[in-house]
Computed example of a mutant assay.
Amino acid sequence: MRFSRFLALGDSFTEGMSDEIIAGQYRGWADRIADVFAAENSDFTYANFAIRGKLLHQVVADQVPLIFPLITGPETLVSFHAGANDALRPNYKASIVLPLYAETVRKIAKTGATILLFTVLEKTSDSKGKTAQMWQERFGEFNRNVRAVAAEVGAIVADANEEGFLSDLRFLAKDRLHLNSEGHYRSAQAILEKLDYPFDLQWRTPLPTAEKKGFYRRSIEWWRWFITFLIPWIWRRLRGVSSGDGRSAKHYQPIKWLNHESSQLPPSVHTPLSESSDPKSMDLSAYLTDRELSWLSFNERVLELAEDKSVPLLERVRFLSIFSSNLDEFYMVRVATLMRKLETGVTAKNSAGFTPQELLKEIALKTRSLVERQSTTFVSDILPKLNN
């Protein structure tokens, strides 16, 4: 199978933390396999809805509904990985998470898309103690659920536990949670092999034997990790906030993808430049879509689902709620940033050719139109049906 579209759902793993950064975004395994898909299909498109820190129910509510209108059949690859963040929480309830995961996969399978699922690494090279044993048991149960529903619907499974050397901590970033660049690269190659695409035959080669670290060095590294990563994580949990709060997805809608291996242009470029073009000497604004306006287009697609009369009534109400929540967050984070630029006298144009003032005007016009449509849909269509 050769894919014409790739839709990625999930959390930090699929967002790409903590791979190399290109154009201000983590690259990640998903971008890396998109590079290979694009190299073989000039019409290939890619969307990545994943946001770090999201729990399973958040991915199911906020990301999954957006992919259904975008799926065209088995030539659309949908990757789904969520639930590992739930298993890390003290109040984790497998009786809720596992059935929700399985039911979501079944819903996606009904679209006819090709589905890619993932297991979680159950044990790393330093997995010791009661906490590590607890997470190992939770992840083991989670993985059995993944494999069972995958077998049921015919999904492809990328199993992190098949290759023992992947438990090497040197594939993890300094936070000891997310993959580093080498980890994302090897994950991408493993997935490409699963999908029968060209891949690096050396991805299974274990790293050289690690040098032994003395007690003093290990202690310093542990305390550095504890202070830099663990304490902030605990503090977020106590406050009920997430690292993904206020963040939006990398690519809100399918874009014509440029292969990062052959081009260093930003991933938001929709139209390839000619081979003879020199990006450094060109005005790229004609090739770029502004990030904020692209986000509004993404939210417009949510509104269109609420306007669709073939969608069940209560689902339409939910899409209106998602639309409003998204818009609130957009103004609190994105528009607030633009306002600060305006207040500090920034007049430079961005890569898409807008000054902050021009962009705020465009946002106001677009938002006014969207909110009018939302009000009309609710007052004139949905509310009367709810009353009946």
Rank of each mutant, 00 (worst) to 15 (best):
S4W: 02
F13W: 10
T14Y: 02
E15C: 04
M17L: 15
G24A: 12
G28L: 04
G28M: 03
F37W: 07
S42M: 10
Y46E: 00
N48K: 05
G53Q: 06
K54Y: 10
K54E: 10
L55V: 06
V60Q: 01
A61N: 09
D62W: 08
P65T: 08
P69F: 12
G73H: 05
P74D: 12
L77C: 05
L88C: 13
T104L: 06
L116Q: 02
T119H: 09
S127H: 08
K130Y: 08
Q136M: 10
R138G: 05
R138V: 03
G140H: 13
R147H: 06
E162V: 11
F165H: 13
S167L: 01
R170D: 09
D175M: 00
N180G: 06
H184E: 06
K194V: 05
P198V: 01
F199A: 03
R204M: 03
P208W: 07
E211S: 14
G214N: 13
F215V: 15
V241I: 12
S243C: 10
S243A: 12
G246Q: 01
P254Q: 12
L258V: 05
H260V: 08
S263P: 00
Q264T: 13
P267S: 08
V269P: 00
H270A: 14
T271A: 11
M282V: 10
D283V: 03
W295N: 07
E304N: 13
A306M: 04
D308Y: 09
P312S: 03
R318Y: 09
R318V: 05
F319Y: 15
F323M: 05
L327F: 10
D328S: 12
Y331V: 01
M332R: 13
L338Q: 07
K349R: 15
A352D: 08
P356C: 06
S369P: 00
S369A: 15
R373V: 09
Q374L: 02
L383H: 10
